[in-house]
């Protein structure tokens, strides 16, 4: 009897250990961040108005750990990135990160029990795509792809595409249009104005 139950326990252990391995490293890390954010958003204690800022701060922190801002900026400016000085790059990074964070916060704060289904991932060298399906309460599925890049043993998000629309590609088109039509300085002015809007 004893060996059999030992075998049972071993089998159970193997099962527990192997489940996370099945979905792969990038998916696991995205899941970790996304679970963390959902926990913050659905925490009722944090929903009081006097703790709104604290809640935002917590979400911002979780987002910061997973997003690779430099990579996002480089891709969003595209061919105009190389022409920038170090100071300009830093200034751009701060403004663009603020805008993305705000957009993300407003999306996340509207969370009302949507289900997140992990549909798989494709890895190609240091790049990967984590495919997710968000099921709303109206039972419509929104496909979301997280594009991630590996740095050390962590995977970082550099682009998110929703319904096939890449966020970074969309900003790249806007930024390019503004720079080509007027100037980079004008882009920075517009960004600053946008971020200061409330």
């Amino acid at each position: 009897m004893a060996p059999r139950s030992l075998f049972g326990i071993l089998f159970f252990l193997v099962l527990i250990v192997s489940i996370p391995v099945l979905s792969g490293e990038p998916t696991e890390q995205i899941r970790e961040t996304s679970d963390k954010i959902i926990a913050i958003v659905s925490n009722h204690d944090l929903n009081r108005t006097d703790r709104a800022e604290e809640k935002r701060q917590l979400i911002r922190q979780a987002v910061d750990e997973r997003f690779k801002w430099d990579e996002m900026c480089r891709r969003a400016l595209g061919r105009h990135w190389v022409k920038r000085t170090q100071e300009e790059k830093k200034e751009f990074r701060d403004l663009f990160a603020k805008l993305l964070e705000r957009t993300y916060l407003e999306k996340v704060e509207g969370y009302s029990g949507e289900e997140v289904i992990y549909e798989g991932e494709t890895i190609d060298g240091k790049y990967a795509v984590v495919k997710v399906e968000i099921v709303t309460q109206k039972k419509t599925d929104i496909p979301v792809h997280y594009k991630v890049v590996k740095d050390g043993n962590q995977w970082f998000i550099y682009d998110i595409s929703v319904n096939g629309i890449s966020l970074i590609n969309n900003y790249r088109a806007q930024f390019n249009s503004i720079i080509v039509k007027s100037s980079y300085e004008d882009l920075i002015d517009k960004l600053r104005l946008k971020v200061s809007e409330d």
Binding site: T103, Y171, I178, L191
Partner: peptide
Amino acid sequence: EALKRAALDPYVSVRNGYWQYRENK
């Protein structure tokens, strides 16, 4: 409203979003 709030040039954002969406389809 959400698109406009996130966009620097909403016209270009709509054009690019439409294009990406259709190409993907």
